[in-house]
Design a binder for these strands. Structure first.
Length: 288
DNA sequence: CGGATTTGACCCGCGC
DNA sequence: GCGCGGGTCAAATCCG
């Protein structure tokens, strides 16, 4: 897994997690006083990050605990310190994201921790908590996008930003359903996506198209439709037997941005699309 | 040439 | 019951 090499040699957890078969998430770098939303980088304020972290749910705590247990004593203690009682709810299949997030949310993080931590991806909205804040670490290329903060929060000068040296960024989020109720131009949820369950939704700035979107899964583009003034694209997971779907729609409210809806659960772990092995590719095609 | 993308047609659910 | 909106299919086209 070549992408693991971009992490520091001291980041044992990251490397070990990669060696355990988890894909590398989107690396972010931490920096202060970035303070702009010019789409040249992806940013998440400390407050925004906390807001998101507070409302996300750990999906696979068994795997997380297992990974932590394999750490050297010092590192294990460091990770464990952030786990219990910190009200952190992260729902992510990417362990590095979880550990990093947990550490940050615990309030015990240092800037060095943030440098390590910085990856989060495929976080999903926790609907049953009536939260709706979405944080998802889609890997986009070229980088662009930003994370919205809740409107009732004051601005923060500190942000988590995507490392400009790589082409991956996290996303920005959109609240659901309350934000859509407040939005002057919310894209309607597709009928069939209503029937199923919309796992999460988010929006982010993408220069031209969604072609470079890589959230760790291989998608088949099976349809496109003009909805009002926006173009909606439909995707389904390319893996045989997986019923996950998503659709994207351009945002009339925010030109250059798209909304992303996700529906259904993947029946397989994420991986980067270019890692789709030939058997899966064959299975996917033969199943269509 | 094979895989990916586009796009028109068909089908179905929902609202009236 | 009917019409419309929009989700999906699949043939055509594009592209590497």
């Amino acid at each position: 897994m070549d992408s693991c090499r971009q992490y520091g040699d001291d980041d044992l957890s990251m490397r070990e997690m990669c060696s355990k078969g988890f894909e590398s998430p989107s690396p972010l770098s931490y920096r202060d006083e970035v303070g702009n939303d010019n789409h040249n980088h992806t940013s998440l304020t400390r407050e925004g990050w906390n807001d998101a972290a507070e409302h996300l749910l750990i999906r696979d705590d068994k795997a997380l605990n297992s990974a932590i247990a394999d750490q050297p004593d010092e590192r294990r203690n460091q990770l464990n310190r952030s786990s219990p009682g910190d009200q952190l709810h992260v729902k992510s299949p990417r362990l590095p994201t979880i550990t990093s997030t947990a550490h940050y949310a615990s309030g015990e993080q240092t800037d060095n921790d943030l440098d390590k931590l910085v990856s989060f991806s495929s976080m999903q909205i926790c609907k049953d908590r009536n939260v709706g804040t979405v944080a998802s670490g889609n890997r986009l290329s070229p980088t662009n996008g930003f994370i919205d903060r809740k409107p009732d929060k004051s601005p923060s000068s500190s942000e988590l930003s995507v490392d400009p040296t790589n082409n991956r960024l996290p996303m920005l989020r959109q609240e659901r359903p309350t934000a859509f109720q407040q939005s002057p131009d919310p894209p309607p949820t597709p009928r069939h996506f209503k029937a199923q369950e919309v796992e999460y939704e988010l929006s982010f700035s993408v220069p031209n198209s969604t072609a470079d979107l890589d959230d760790g899964f291989a998608w088949l583009h099976y349809g496109r439709k003009q909805i009002g003034g926006a173009m909606r694209s439909y995707f389904k997971c390319a893996v045989h037997g997986c019923h996950a779907k998503k659709w994207t729609q351009s945002s009339s409210e925010m030109p250059g941005s798209i909304y992303l809806y996700h529906s259904g659960k993947h029946s397989h772990p994420p991986r980067s699309s270019n890692q789709l092995d030939s058997q899966d590719a064959h299975d996917s095609l033969s199943s269509l």
